[in-house]
């Protein structure tokens, strides 16, 4: 692939001797929608921690963008500003603030304290906020306090905040957890639309959700890639069935 956006190669990390990630290599193109599945402890969340700078790997490289920048050693904020947005497993929005304030904070604008202090509201920013709210279906809720939103709405708000950052890569950790069926459908639509212009990586447990995403799937097991391809392709892989799917039937 010549349009590779993110290249993770040979990354390992261990906690107290336990190898959470074991010479993991993954490439993400732009645009692309990718689902990452795997049993508990496969290293899905740690994989995201490494990309976003929360965890420093023991070895390996993480290369980003056309200019092949190494993400290792960059701070979380720098990585975010380089164009990587992350949604956590638990919805983390600023519950004390309004939906509009949440989105305004996430909008791609200068991030320095002075610029923020002297920041003034502009019609352009307001229009962008409206557009994102429209996209995530929270147009009517803009003046509401985020803490009052339903669980699903919080998830969407967080995805909206991600979109507001205008990232090139979205890392989404279990977006469908705790959602109703309709909410899941809507979430799938949002993610698919987002993936038309950028790279979106979804970590998910729910096979139905992954099927609906209809994208390339990477199976992680014990910190490394077990299989990669379409969902049908990987689910027919006997090793995958054994370590992951098979367990449920056994």
């Amino acid at each position: 692939m010549n349009n590779t956006l993110l290249e993770v190669s040979g990354v390992s990390v261990s906690f107290d001797g336990f190898k959470a990630i074991n010479s993991l290599s993954i490439q993400i193109a732009e645009p692309e929608l990718r689902a990452i599945i795997g049993p508990n402890g496969a290293g899905k969340t740690t994989f995201m921690d490494i990309i976003t700078g929360k965890t420093k790997p023991d070895e390996g490289v993480v290369i980003w963008g056309e200019r092949n920048i190494s993400l290792l050693g960059m701070s979380e904020a720098d990585i975010a500003n380089a164009g990587i947005g992350r949604k956590f497993q638990k919805p983390t929005v600023f519950e004390a603030q309004t939906v509009r304030q949440n989105l305004a904070m996430a909008l791609k604008n200068p991030r320095g304290p002075l610029a923020v202090l002297l920041h003034r509201k502009t019609p352009a920013n307001a229009a962008r906020i409206e557009a994102i709210a429209e996209e995530i279906g929270l147009s009517d809720s803009l003046p509401r306090i985020a803490g009052e939103l339903s669980h699903g709405q919080k998830q969407w708000l967080e995805i909206g905040m991600l979109l507001a950052q205008e990232p090139r890569l979205l890392l989404v950790d279990e977006p469908a957890a705790g959602m109703t069926v309709e909410e899941r459908e809507k979430t799938t639509d949002i993610l698919k639309r987002a993936a038309q212009t950028r790279a979106v990586v979804v970590v998910e447990h729910d096979m139905e959700f992954v099927r609906r995403l209809n994208c390339k799937v990477t199976v992680l097991h014990e910190g490394s890639v077990l299989a990669e391809g379409s969902l049908d392709h990987v689910t027919s892989n006997p090793t995958v069935i054994e370590v992951y799917l098979g367990r449920g039937h056994a």
Binding site: K54, E76, A77, F94, A96, Q97, Q101, M105, V116, H119
Partner: peptide, 28 residues
């Protein structure tokens, strides 16, 4: 008030989230 207030209160409520939004929390 304004955006500074949002960021500062965001830091109070969830420092890591603000950081992943691309703000250098330490500076604030």
């Amino acid at each position: 008030s304004g955006k500074m207030g949002s960021v500062v209160q965001g830091i109070r409520d969830n420092e890591a989230r603000v950081r992943f939004l691309g703000y250098r929390v330490e500076g604030y």
